[in-house]
Amino acid sequence: MSSLLEITWTDPVTGRHGYVVIDTLVRGLASGGLRLREGCTLAEVRGLAQGMTRKEALVYDPADRYLPLGGGKGGIDIDPADPQAVDVLRRFLTAVLPVVREQWNTGEDFGLRQETIDKVAADLGLASTVEAVFATLDDAPAARQRLASAFACLVDGISLGDLVGGYGVAQAGLVAAERHALEPSATTAVVQGFGSIGGAAARYLARAGVRVVAVADRAGLVRDDAGLDVEALLAARDDLGVIDRAALPAGARVDDAEWLDVPCDLLVPAAMSYVIAESDAARVRARIVVEGANMPTLPEAEAALAARGIPVVPDFLANVMTNAWWWWIVFGDIEPTAGSSFAKIDVVMRRLVTTVADDADATGRTLRASALELADSNAQAVLARAGVR
């Protein structure tokens, strides 16, 4: 199915390209983040927008006030560390501002922090990057306050908004491991990417008792087969998720191995897209892959992993909670607290993984195929509730 809207923008100063894709609209609205990545393409953003349509539908619960939106996504072809990145971001948002005001509700994604996009949006006269949703709410002032309170909530010095996505990934991994009769204390994990998703996933896997034996960031691999001190690594990372090698905790070492080659039970790619290609599948030495990033595993690689009996918990299931959490807060389904947020994520992620895995076991399909069917079924229910025939 083709997208409803695709925008390709060229920066008049640097020649860099930016993209917006609206895959679907529900009640005239779409949801999905904006990423900054060197090499980002329209095809990538299109795939991400399709994934957002699935994420929105997947978490639908008729008992919630939150009625899922359509799916959209944005991307700019620039390294987030480029000194010109924020200026390019500002010019891009200026150019696509009508879409942001009316349809596309966006936020942080790979390479872009929420505080950065919020500041640029404020400079452009936007109170937030989800104004299109606020315009539809009867209690918009209260919803704004709930969202502000949620982002102001700190958990061990980290904003709750930077934790919920990775917390959800960790819960997806724990439920998947449980189905494979793996107790947390007997489970090992490798996490690729140590930003908000990867860092939080590592934190909450470790807190559940999982031994995180390796973490990969832009600078390489940090490893300790006895189990890394994840909290010490979090304290030593910079804003781009790179760990200070001079501040490694006892036992941790820089390793020349590639993250794909490290034996583990849970492999969590939690940074870039397209990092597991067909040629990489034979190298994977994990029992389960849990996709913390968007589109990290290419279809041919996933088929090769399935042939080896290695299930892949798909991205639009494993990393759905950042998006869902925003809307649960905005619509008032949960309180803007860590306790309320984590409790909701626990219940919903267990339900989703269990439902999808039960169907996959019964039908012989992959987890992705079963999750796609659930998302499609929910999407029809959402449209019916929204009055769309």
Rank of each mutant, 00 (worst) to 15 (best):
I22T: 08
H17W: 03
R27Q: 13
D23W: 03
G15D: 06
H17Q: 10
L42M: 12
G33S: 07
I22N: 00
V21D: 02
P12A: 15
H17L: 08
R16I: 00
R35K: 14
P12V: 06
G47T: 13
G33T: 11
C40I: 01
A49C: 10
T41L: 05
A49T: 07
G32F: 06
R16V: 00
P12W: 04
G32K: 09
A49S: 06
G28K: 08
I7Y: 13
I22P: 00
R46C: 03
A43N: 06
E44C: 08
A43I: 10
G47W: 02
V26Y: 00
L48P: 14
R35L: 13
R16W: 01
V13R: 11
A49I: 11
I7Q: 07
W9N: 09
R37N: 11
L36C: 10
L29A: 08
E38A: 15
R35T: 00
D23H: 10
L25I: 05
A49N: 03
A30D: 13
G47C: 08
Q50F: 12
L42E: 00
E38P: 01
T10R: 12
Y19E: 03
L42Q: 04
R35W: 12
L34T: 15
G39L: 11
Q50D: 05
V13C: 06
G18M: 07
D23C: 01
L29W: 01
R27C: 03
L25P: 00
T24W: 02
G28V: 06
R46T: 15
A30E: 02
G33N: 08
V26A: 05
T8V: 15
R27Y: 02
Q50L: 15
V13S: 09
V26H: 04
T24Y: 04
T14D: 06
A43V: 12
I7H: 15
L34N: 09
E38T: 14
T24F: 05
D11P: 00
G39R: 11
E38N: 11
L36R: 09
S31C: 07
D23L: 09
I7L: 15
T14Y: 09
G47F: 07
G28N: 08
V20W: 10
R46A: 09
V45T: 14
H17G: 01
A43T: 11
L36E: 05
E44A: 10
T8Q: 03
E38K: 11
T41W: 05
S31A: 14
G33W: 10
T8G: 01
L48N: 10
G15C: 11
E38H: 13
L25A: 01
G39Y: 11
I7F: 15
V21P: 13
E38Y: 12
L42K: 06
T24Q: 03
T41C: 01
Q50N: 07
V26L: 03
D11Q: 04
A43W: 09
V13Q: 08
